[in-house]
């Protein structure tokens, strides 16, 4: 076979392989994007348009006013401020506590460390339904119901998954850095704060992103622990858009979806801002550990 012929064969083989791969990826992408596209489409309809047959994916006129209507039907900005407040504190708590615990598990030798780590990981096996009522009773006895404390304080006591993720990442950081810092007179907290944390930015970005998305979108926690409308978060507020009083009440799907789009926006923005760190953190934390 000539050089040209071999090149052509390799070229076509690669082309067909990539074509199939990208086609598959494209189909998967469409599959994942379809609900998102539907949400965007519905948010621009009126209620009759949502139930029109056949459904029109692109409305005759995109009803931007739905977004304004959502913010006027609910104390939207109040709820957004509540959500942001909770999210920021949870973020701080999670990053501080998880990184500190992970630092201990990855850097400090002590008796029973591995057992403790296994115990910590085993708490991941407990489904939320099992701990829901005992936790609720605990928070009742502390007088924390209808406050933000049950939503925020647990974040300061670590989360096993993030501890695991960070520990794996910390273990990839050479110990020589610690030794050099010790020679310079740094204590453990100083090493943690000034050496480990700056080097672990990608992993911290992953934890921060997951925490942000999880807390921002959390519905169940606020539903269980909050009672007063003034303390509500965005997800709770959104649930109030569903009319449930009258047995056959109409759910305002177009407004619900407009609200969902608004709530989702910070997630999208943060994901794109942190995308580089996110991918790197996942790859390093997940594969090298």
């Amino acid at each position: 076979m000539t050089e040209n012929g071999r090149f052509g064969k390799v070229f076509w083989a690669a082309l067909s392989r990539y074509t199939v791969m990208y086609l598959l990826l494209g189909v998967l992408c469409l599959l994942f994007l379809a609900p998102f596209a539907w949400m965007l489409s519905v948010s621009g309809h009126d209620l009759a348009g949502v139930f029109a047959e056949p459904y029109r994916w692109i409305p005759d006129r995109y009803r931007w006013e739905n977004f304004g209507l959502v913010t006027s039907l609910l104390p939207f900005w109040r709820y957004a401020a509540n959500t942001l407040f909770i999210t920021v504190l949870v973020l701080i708590g999670t990053l501080l506590s998880c990184s500190l615990v992970a630092y201990g598990f990855s850097r400090i030798q002590f008796r029973g460390r591995d057992t403790l780590f296994a115990l910590c990981l085993s708490t991941m096996m407990l489904p939320g339904q099992v701990t829901m009522i005992p936790l609720y009773m605990l928070f009742v006895s502390l007088g924390w119901i209808d406050t933000y404390l049950p939503l925020i304080v647990p974040a300061f006591f670590g989360s096993p998954f993030y501890i695991f993720l960070l520990r794996q990442f910390f273990m990839t950081i050479p110990r020589e850095y610690d030794e050099a810092a010790v020679l310079d007179g740094a204590g453990r907290l100083r090493i943690y704060w000034s050496i480990i944390l700056p080097l672990a930015r990608p992993a911290l970005a992953v934890v921060a992103l997951f925490t942000f998305v999880g807390t921002w979108n959390d519905f169940f926690g606020p539903l269980i622990y909050l009672n007063s409308p003034e303390t509500a978060t965005l997800t709770l507020g959104l649930s109030m858009l569903k009319s449930q009083v009258v047995g056959t009440g109409a759910t305002q799907w177009h407004l619900l979806m407009a609200g969902a789009v608004l709530i989702m926006l910070p997630n999208v923005v943060i994901f794109f801002l942190a995308q580089k760190h996110f991918v790197k953190g996942i790859a390093v934390g997940g594969l090298r550990g």
Binding site: I145, D146, T147, Y148, L149, F156, T231, S243, Q244, V245
Partner: peptide
């Protein structure tokens, strides 16, 4: 900061009996 968050619970208001209604309603 977290411990200073607003707390509220069941309180009687001005001598009135207070009942809590889990009200499934829209805003």
């Amino acid at each position: 900061a977290a411990s200073c968050l607003p707390g509220c619970g069941r309180q009687d208001v001005g001598g009135n009996a207070e009942v809590v209604y889990n009200c499934p309603a829209n805003a």
